[in-house]
């Protein structure tokens, strides 16, 4: 095994310039979009780094999961991330790695006798396969990271508090009200109550598709917290079907002021704060 690895490494090292040259040509021919999006110079730099790492990895007697392949994996991570950022598809990134195989194999053929060939093929084959598959893992990871970031960004905009009139704030609730969003909603609402010296908070649940016991519990918690600060909560957007469902569920909202429409809620809020529009 060791013998084959070092032999393969030697052949690659001796023909480095030729391999790179052919690889570049192949990449320019077959994966045009890749070369276009990362640029010719970056591509040349990347291919050279990659080949160096591959040779380096081959000279170590270790398998792909081992420590000596850390460099190879790190470089692969780096390359796939960069390419993903340039909005290349994972297939294109994988092709970048796989295309090297077509160049190495003919080289082996001219440099050794048939008896040795099979072992060398399978070694380089499995190595390149693993590196190629690895790019997919990296691609997926970077996508998931992006998704987490977007989720975070979405969380921040998802609970706006609007000051609609003097001493009246409104919180339009949309989508799913889970624990972390409720926590955020409460914080924003309570801070706004303090900042604007508001006396009434209108929570509009028109945009919540399913009002179940969890949503109800969150609403009750938020309304109770507001009440502790001397403010009243008006829950608006309770439509006929939601009202019936809540009663059947046994949710008791009788301690809270509720209205069907936001307009009704606003009217009531104005009355509670002794104000008139116009």
């Amino acid at each position: 095994m060791n013998n084959i690895q070092s032999n393969a490494a030697r052949i690659l090292q001796n023909n480095k310039a030729e391999i790179l040259d052919q690889w570049h040509q192949q990449l320019i021919l077959n994966t045009k979009s890749l070369v276009e999006s990362i640029g010719l110079n970056v591509m040349k730099q990347r291919t050279e780094e990659f080949l160096d790492t591959l040779i380096d990895a081959l000279t170590q007697d270790d398998d792909f999961e081992g420590d000596s392949y850390d460099n190879a994996r790190n470089l692969m991570t780096d390359i796939s991330r960069q390419m993903t950022l340039s909005s290349l598809t994972p297939s294109e990134v994988t092709l970048f790695v796989f295309s090297l195989r077509d160049i190495i194999f003919p080289l082996f053929q001219t440099n050794m006798d048939a008896g040795q060939l099979a072992a060398h093929y399978s070694l380089v084959n499995s190595l390149i396969d693993r590196l190629g598959v690895f790019t997919f893992t990296v691609y997926q990871e970077s996508r998931e990271e992006l998704m987490r970031e977007q989720q975070q960004a979405f969380m921040e905009v998802s609970v706006p508090v609007v000051r609609i009139w003097d001493r009246i704030i409104m919180i339009p609730l949309v989508g799913m009200l889970d624990s972390s969003r409720t926590q955020q909603m409460m914080e924003t609402m309570l801070t706004a109550l303090e900042d604007y010296q508001s006396k009434v908070a209108i929570m509009d649940i028109s945009g919540i598709p399913v009002v179940d016991t969890l949503v109800a519990r969150h609403l009750i918690t938020a309304a109770s917290a507001a009440r502790l600060m001397g403010a009243e909560c008006i829950i608006t957007g309770i439509r006929a079907r939601i009202s019936q469902t809540l009663v059947q569920l046994g949710v008791d909202l009788s301690g809270f002021i509720t209205r069907t429409t936001l307009a009704d809620g606003l009217q009531l809020a104005l009355k509670m704060t002794d104000q008139k529009i116009g």
Partner: peptide, 20 residues
């Protein structure tokens, strides 16, 4: 039963679902 919960919730879910 209404109000029974082992998970710090309102304790209305299971019974409520039955009524729904």
């Amino acid at each position: 039963r209404q109000g029974f919960s082992t998970s710090n919730s309102l304790g209305l879910g299971l019974g409520g679902a039955k009524k729904l």
